[in-house]
């Protein structure tokens, strides 16, 4: 089974970090005395700018969770549709070729789910098996690839499409001036990406999925996630993510690779979720990566911010189009998310 293609779609409303800072600053001064410190915090995440689901002035009109979620449902279909069409076109496939549609998100809720609404908009075949998955968070890009590969392993003549849509800006609680929310307001952006994963009986140019591994870290629910409040999703963010990376990621990657008779030195390309600067630095140290190994991921973080599950798919898209590894070389796709958990996907290019 192979990843035939990845297509992405970003909302058209791009703002550089200074513009976003200026918009948030007025809100911060209502409660915080040392606003310079908060601005430094925003600059430290090394994000240059972000695409937003809506024009920035429209966020003031979002008075309730319902308002935000209505916008999410509308924009998620727009960017989701574009991402799927781009991915299918790159794979040389049409909507009639799709057999399964996996939809992942953690930034909005809808029933019928976005995948169902896209069945209508894209005129996907009625036989398509839909799998909407909510709540995996940042790990869902890599985990979605793994689940799509599991599907086509069972049906080697079929085509699975993974769609990730994350509109993080629509979850921002502007009245929440806690530090985790202030960090989130500087880091997370909006976007969508779709990957076409095909079974072994179909031809594809993209990397082969050799194997995947899920790793769950018991009793770590407090590391990251959402609390649900009357106004929507309130972020839970601890400093524990880099610690988990430092303590467990090297061990888990080694164990996974060892089962294939491999070691880290056999991996030529790393397709990682960006997290944030501290997470990426912890990853580089824990895995003792060579200089530049995560350049595509760092560039993604700088260009558009952390797009939760969408990010690792965009890193994969960039790797496939502009930094394609040597044919036959091995790569590892990896992401972490709420639970706390990791997902590793071993690729052969």
């Amino acid at each position: 089974m192979n990843i035939a293609s990845v297509g992405s779609a970003l909302p058209p409303h791009f703002y550089d970090q200074e513009t976003l800072l200026a918009a948030l600053r007025a809100n911060w001064t209502q409660r915080h005395h040392n606003v310079d410190r908060l601005e430094a915090l925003h600059r430290n995440v090394l994000v240059g700018g972000r695409h937003l689901a809506l024009p920035i002035e429209e966020y003031d009109n979002l008075k309730t969770w319902g308002d935000s979620n209505d916008a999410w449902t509308r924009v998620a279909q727009d960017v989701g549709e574009t991402a799927i069409l781009r991915a299918l076109e790159k794979a040389g496939l049409g909507v009639d070729d799709v057999d399964a549609l996996i939809f992942v998100t953690v930034t909005g809720v809808a029933t019928p789910s976005i995948d169902a609404r896209l069945m209508n908009r894209l005129h996907l075949p009625p036989r398509v098996k839909r799998m909407p998955i909510f709540g995996l968070g940042c790990v869902a890009g890599a985990a979605g690839i793994a689940r799509a590969a599991d599907y086509v392993r069972a049906y080697p003549d079929q085509v699975a499409v993974l769609l990730s849509v994350e509109l993080c800006s629509l979850t921002l609680q502007r009245q929440d001036l806690s530090i985790p929310n202030l960090i989130a307001s500087g880091l997370f952006g909006d976007g969508a990406a779709a990957a076409v994963v095909v079974g072994a009986e179909r031809r594809a140019d993209g990397p082969q999925v050799i194997d995947s591994r899920s790793i769950f870290y018991p009793d770590s629910e407090e590391v990251m996630g959402w609390d649900i409040s009357e106004s929507g999703f309130k972020i839970v963010l601890s400093a524990g993510v880099p610690e988990v990376v430092k303590h467990y990621l090297g061990r888990d990657v080694d164990a996974f690779l060892d089962d294939h008779g491999l070691s880290r030195s056999d991996i030529r390309s790393w397709v990682s979720h960006p997290g944030g600067p501290k997470v990426l630095t912890a990853m580089e140290e824990a895995l003792e990566l060579p200089d530049g190994a995560l350049d595509v991921t760092w560039n993604s973080l700088r260009s558009v911010g952390n797009l939760s599950s969408t990010s690792v798919l965009m890193v994969l898209e960039d790797t496939m189009s502009d930094h394609r590894p040597e044919p036959g070389s091995l790569g590892l796709m990896l992401a972490m998310g709420p639970g706390f958990c990791s997902e590793l996907v071993l690729l052969r290019w």
Binding site: R31, H32, H33, N34, R37, S178, I179, P180, A239
Partner: peptide, 13 residues
């Protein structure tokens, strides 16, 4: 580190 930052910012406030 996040709680340390929170403490610093809240004592500033």
């Amino acid at each position: 580190s996040i709680k340390l930052l929170t403490l610093a910012i809240e004592v500033e406030n």
